[in-house]
Design a protein around this nucleic acid. Structure first.
Lengths: 362, 362
DNA sequence: CTGAAAGCGCTAACAA
DNA sequence: TTGTTAGCGCTTTCAG
């Protein structure tokens, strides 16, 4: 089961002791530069890779910590990401992996504060959802460049920063799928209302762009009456959607963020739930009745649990095994309709808010 | 980073040496029964769990082998499962995990022969797609009960056997989704042809059942003209579908196995590709043009790569960390349409037949 | 600046 | 039947 050389063989090859090899390989001080160069050259030549098992065994006391900064508890979406992160991280407990959870009160609220504190705390990786990418970019750069922290964006990207990678459903594709679905459900010339969260959050903005671009192409004569930006607050969403619907009647609504309950309630209050087709985003327990009764015709699920899992996997593989990080890690969106709802329920049920499945994600 | 007790503490607690504790815990011979009981009781009481890292380090020479029995190269579907298995297994190389690939020539062909050989070869786990579950069940039982091999069925189940678990898209749900989709695409009273592989293979049989059950409910007056069983052979499929279409004109086709190319060709040969809506199963490079040009309206993707990955994960977690195996591990089916096709293409391209993405699966 | 040696938790070979 | 001990590959401390 051995592949390359080990540290002892390397020491023999270099004609030094394993202590010196260790120092050279791990950039520790106290090695003559010449010696270090020699060791590194030999290591590269023989494809030396440290055995993570042995390493873990010997440094068990030094935990490998990964920070997690997400909006707290709303939408549930972020809780599922968190669950995915913790679940995956727990599989590496024996390798000393620990997650430091540092939630923010809401998307884009006190983000910078929380993140700047976390990058001072000696973590090796950071998983974060940038709600306000412009404000966060300098901090992410600082983490990457000055603190040698690998930053992974999850659920939304911060493309102006130097984050190592991002894990998310491609928001363009997401919007395009919504467009294709609504176009299939509605006749030519359909009028659509788009509801979103924060247009400055990249994920939200690009979903709207993808939708706007493709809807007129999939639906002959189709138009978008307006784009409502309601900041993921239920009450704000309810009010704005009601007003918009009164102003401009539509046949379809695309909700590009996890705020569809407020939209459904607004529709009900105007008795429009039968006559307007809704394509939503994400999935959580409270949405299910609306899918079952047809208020929501389809929803585009972005598997937050898997996103969390994936972010951890990338980080661990990179930090522990040196696997290079891909520049992006797209998660495939899933269309949820009535017939597939059973696959999204947890068999046992029980705890509130956890009805949406993670079974298939292990 | 330490959780429970370790073997040394346990030895102290039991008033014996670590050698004896090791013997007791691992059912090795040469311990007085009384001593063994005592050690086991104490281990349970203090939640002792061996550190897989240390174990791996000390027995590196004893590989932990997992066998993989799948149909070879056709449909490509199985190759993706294989890729998922190898990819995930490689992440545990440092723990001594190895995959032994023992393909069968075709689904249900020479299965028993290959499997019976493999269970004699000292593997700890077996991942298998039972094409002929009735014939395979006794062998699976033998592996589980006599050889202490954990058997995981993948892509299809063998419910009459005592396999530890199975990983697969719920075939009922799969069929139901196809029904909901076709019902949405077609007017009331639509007539449907169903094309399948082997009705004795559980996965195929149940898909057809799910479809047959739900289609009439989603589509008023909808009927199924006939079910064609074509054994996953392209030529057989082509011929039988042509005959069926001539016999009974239909508006829609549900192809419940990865044989849709042959179906598309049959449609083309009769110039019916514009007038018949096809809902297919699975996805591979050669299908993409048919999805783009609308011959196939949607396909239900069963993420074979993820199925392979998942099977390995379950096995490793169980064998290495003692995680109990779930009785089933459903994979969520994904609807593929034109707008999401880009997410299924590999960016680099290159090798034939590998165009379908595994990016998001890591 | 470098070498030697003591562990990390476990297995396996050897002693008693 | 049990105890003792030498590693597995790496980090880290203590000598030189």
């Amino acid at each position: 089961v051995k592949s390359g050389v080990n540290i002892r063989e390397l020491a023999l090859l270099a004609g030094v002791s394993i202590g010196t090899v260790d120092r050279a390989l791990n950039n520790r001080r106290g090695v003559k530069d010449e010696t270090r160069k020699k060791v590194l050259r030999l290591a590269a030549k023989h494809g030396y890779a440290p055995d993570p098992t042995a390493r873990a065994l010997s440094v068990m006391r030094a935990p490998l910590r990964i920070a997690l900064c997400l909006p707290k508890h709303f939408p549930v979406f972020y809780d599922y990401i968190r669950d995915g992160v913790f679940s995956e991280a727990s599989r590496y407990r024996h390798l000393g992996v620990e997650v430091v959870y540092r939630p923010t009160p809401h998307l884009a609220i006190r983000e910078a504060e929380v993140v700047s504190k976390v990058i001072q705390s000696g973590v090796r990786g950071l998983i974060v959802t940038p709600g306000d990418p412009a404000a966060l970019a300098p901090l992410i750069d600082e983490a990457e460049l000055e603190h040698n922290i690998r930053v992974v964006c999850v659920a939304s990207d911060d493309s102006q920063s130097r984050r190592s990678t991002w894990v998310s459903v491609d928001p363009y594709v997401n919007g395009q799928m919504a467009a294709e679905l609504l176009a299939n459900f509605l006749p030519p010339g359909a009028r659509i209302l788009v509801v979103t969260g924060y247009l400055r959050t990249e994920d939200h903005c690009r979903k709207v762009a993808g939708f706007s671009q493709m809807f007129p192409r999939y639906c002959r004569g189709g138009t978008i009456t307006e784009v409502v930006e309601a900041h993921d607050y239920p009450q704000e969403t309810y009010n704005k959607v009601r007003k918009a619907l009164k102003r401009n009647p539509v046949q379809g609504i695309y909700v590009s963020t996890a705020i569809s309950l407020a939209v459904c309630r607004a529709l009900q209050s105007l008795h429009l739930q039968r006559s307007v087709k809704v394509v939503a985003t994400d999935l959580f327990a409270e949405m299910m009745p609306y899918i079952e009764d047809g208020t929501i015709t389809a929803s585009i699920y972005q598997d937050p649990f898997q996103q969390g899992q994936t972010a951890v996997r990338l980080l661990i593989d990179h930090i522990l095994h040196g696997t290079p990080l891909p520049s992006a890690c797209p998660i495939r969106p899933t269309i949820v309709m009535r017939s597939i709802l059973t696959a999204f329920r947890e068999s046992g049920g029980g705890e509130t808010g956890t009805m949406v499945v993670r079974a298939s994600s292990l």
